[in-house]
């Protein structure tokens, strides 16, 4: 009897201790990054670091602007490509698809979500890079000359560019967005749909006026979570985006996102003063941005769940 109670106490202590550790983990990671990026923030003003566009570590110049611009562009573009397709696919799966279709497509989505990022990157290198450089870029140069942002600058592109990175990224975040959006849409009470159908609305009208409106917070959350996933994705983007430290001027320009910066330069950073600190500041920027977006999404999801529970 004694032993049983002792076991109960010990396991409870163990369970609580581990849970508290996990709870503190986020703070520990953040604290370590802040601590290590302090040296560079002390030497340079934060404004100069974030706004400066010169990246010459050997001369002590650390301007993050091209990298931040690159990250934002590649992510925003990826979302512009992914969100419409993903939301439509999620609506189809949740509202229209037969169970048999769902039973096929959902596992495929899980498989897609599990494909390693280097495989996505290699796919980009093998298929998308030639496609963009040989077909899309020349086509854009011929037909979209009036849009400077959508034409290659010198009339051609290597294919390793913003657009390719965005397409690869869009494919990577698609399963995340579709899964969450599908789950949210399935949470819409059947009675509400039936009420709409009963008064003569078509299925699409029901989707438009009832399901999507009811599920709106959750759909927003799915997009925000997809965004934050895309924001920090490293290897796949690194392999196809070109990695030139300039702010891209068009879709066909190379870019150099923050995660790629960290990944490419970690090896040699110990030899140059403040370099490691600068790279950890880059990691900190990534982390803070992603955390902010995730907190936002969690908040919205809480609202969504509460609404679904009513």
């Amino acid at each position: 009897m004694r032993l049983r109670i002792l076991t109960e106490r010990l396991t409870t202590g163990w369970i609580v201790a581990i849970s508290v550790t996990v709870m503190l983990l986020t703070a520990v990671v953040a604290a370590a990054l802040v601590h290590r990026s302090l040296p560079i923030v002390e030497g340079h003003s934060l404004g100069a670091l974030l706004g400066g566009s010169e990246w010459r570590p050997l001369e002590g110049k650390f301007g993050f602007r091209p990298f931040i611009v690159g990250t934002v562009w590649v992510t925003v573009l990826a979302m512009a490509l992914a969100v419409p397709v993903c939301l439509l696919a999620a609506i189809y799966l949740a509202e229209y698809a037969r169970d048999a279709t769902r039973a096929i497509v959902r596992p495929l989505l899980d498989v897609l979500a599990g494909i390693p990022s280097v495989v996505h990157g290699l796919f980009g290198v093998l298929l998308l890079v030639p496609l963009v450089s040989d077909h899309l870029a020349p086509w854009a140069a011929r037909h979209l000359a009036c849009l400077p942002g959508a034409t290659p600058q010198q009339g051609y592109s290597t294919g390793y560019c913003l657009l390719t990175g965005a397409i690869v990224l869009a494919m990577m975040v698609a399963p995340v967005i579709i899964s969450i959006a599908d789950e949210v849409l399935r949470g819409v009470p059947v009675a509400m749909r039936e009420a709409s159908l009963a008064v003569g609305a078509t299925r699409w009208e029901t989707v438009k006026h009832v399901s999507v409106r009811f599920a709106a917070p959750g759909l927003v959350a799915s997009v925000v979570l997809g965004f934050s996933r895309a924001f920090g994705e490293t290897m796949a983007v690194l392999m196809v985006v070109g990695n030139v430290a300039m702010s891209p001027k068009s879709l066909f320009d190379p870019a150099y996102p923050l995660p790629a910066l960290i990944a490419n330069n970690y090896g040699e950073m110990m030899s140059i003063p403040l370099y490691d600190s600068a790279l950890l500041l880059a990691a900190l920027i990534l982390m803070v941005t992603v955390l902010a977006f995730n907190l936002l999404a969690q908040g919205v999801l809480v609202v969504a769940r509460r609404r679904a529970a009513q």
Binding site: V29, L33, T234
Partner: peptide, 22 residues
């Protein structure tokens, strides 16, 4: 704990790599 897990889920793996390195 639940929020922390959600946040950890979102942190990019490159950040964990950088953290692990430090």
């Amino acid at each position: 704990v639940r929020t922390s897990l959600d946040l950890l889920w979102g942190i990019p793996s490159i950040v964990y790599g950088a953290f692990g390195f430090t």
